[in-house]
């Protein structure tokens, strides 16, 4: 009968791995999944505070929040993409692109500039998602490509120089100029986004659909869900949040350039998402915990400097702490295979 075995094996069926995962110890793991990122941050913060009490009294938390704000937004966007099982290597390049567009439009069109900027970058994110979902290009390769394209686009529109937001800068001033509970408004914007995304994932059909896509895309597809559009949505959200981060860059610095502030957010963003308990395999994300992930990632270099680690050894410390923090907090996905 083998002469014409026409029944195709569904090409995408992973030969095993499913259902073999036996998450024993569910309860304690679940508890740790919920409080782990917070606990790790608290422990690190306490360590820094004990070694250098001045850090606490000198407004260390406020400084931390300023630094964490942009990381948090990028990490939230990254987490949404990770949530559907993909990765977005281009989102830091989107931050810069957004900042440059905003800097150039803020003068001419004033309050409409942030809106236009967000619309543009959301569209860029959506195009990324569209190419992943409908072009069926693996996201890692695709966004590596768009990263290059966006870098070039930033250089071209900024004419390879620093672009200043000359007029209407006061529109964005409150983001870092106003404090709420001691922390700048920009940070609370990020927290608000995190809570919003948390509610989105938990309380809406689209959010649950994205979770389903991340956990088992084939299963979601066979349930008649719009899996492709959920992916587009995730990438669009990543673009949108990167755009908000770009606005923060302008609010903070008043200027942007292709390799300046915000251009190196990719790796901290991914690290913050994962320290915040996001599973790199998809489907397991708690946006609220990413707040603590971002705070942790922002704390490490500040803390290392504050505690007095010699400048030369600081990136060594950074690498080790990030590995340890992730090992402690990451969401260990639905399968026992770790890649």
């Amino acid at each position: 009968m083998s002469k014409k075995a026409l029944l195709e094996q569904p090409a995408t069926v992973p030969a095993a791995a499913d259902g073999k995962a036996r998450p024993a110890r569910r309860a304690p793991q679940n508890l740790w999944f919920t409080v782990g990122p917070f606990a790790v941050f608290l422990a690190l913060f306490a360590l820094v505070a004990v070694l250098r009490p001045a850090f606490l009294t000198g407004g260390g938390m406020a400084i931390l929040a300023v630094q964490a704000a942009t990381i948090l937004l990028v990490a939230l966007g990254q987490a949404m993409v990770l949530h559907v099982g993909s990765i977005d290597l281009s989102n830091a390049a989107i931050v810069i692109f957004a900042a440059i567009v905003l800097a150039q439009t803020l003068g001419p069109i004033g309050p409409a500039a942030p809106v236009v900027t967000l619309a543009v970058v959301t569209l860029i994110g959506a195009v990324n998602g569209f190419l992943v979902a409908f072009g069926q290009i693996p996201s890692f390769a695709l966004t590596l490509g768009t990263l290059g394209i966006l870098q070039a686009a930033s250089l071209v529109i900024s004419n390879a120089t620093t672009v200043y937001a000359t007029a209407n800068g006061q529109l964005l001033a409150p983001l870092f100029g106003t404090a709420f509970a001691g922390l700048p408004l920009a940070f609370w914007v990020g927290v608000l986004m995190a809570v919003g995304l948390w509610a989105f994932l938990r309380f809406t059909r689209a959010g649950e659909g994205m979770t389903a896509v991340g956990l088992n895309e084939t299963g979601a597809l066979f349930s008649g869900l719009r899996t492709r559009w959920f992916k587009v949505m995730a990438f669009a959200l990543s673009g949108l949040l990167a755009g908000v981060a770009g606005i923060l860059v302008i609010a903070q610095a008043g200027a942007a350039s292709s390799f300046g502030l915000g251009s190196d957010l990719l790796l901290p963003g991914i690290a913050a998402a994962i320290v915040g308990g996001t599973a790199i395999t998809g489907g397991i994300t708690n946006p609220v915990n990413i707040v603590f992930g971002a705070l942790t990632v922002a704390l490490v270099p500040i803390g290392a400097a504050a505690v007095g680690v010699t400048p030369q050894a600081q990136s060594l410390v950074y690498g080790l702490v990030i590995i340890a923090a992730v090992a402690l907090t990451m969401g260990r996905g639905h399968t026992e295979v770790v890649k």
């Binding site: 790796l267 690290a271 994962i274 790199i280 395999t281 990030i322 590995i323 992730v326 990451m330 890649k339």
Partner: peptide, 8 residues
């Protein structure tokens, strides 16, 4: 720990 983040 996923290799992505370890090697990072």
């Amino acid at each position: 720990v996923p290799s992505f983040i370890v090697t990072l």
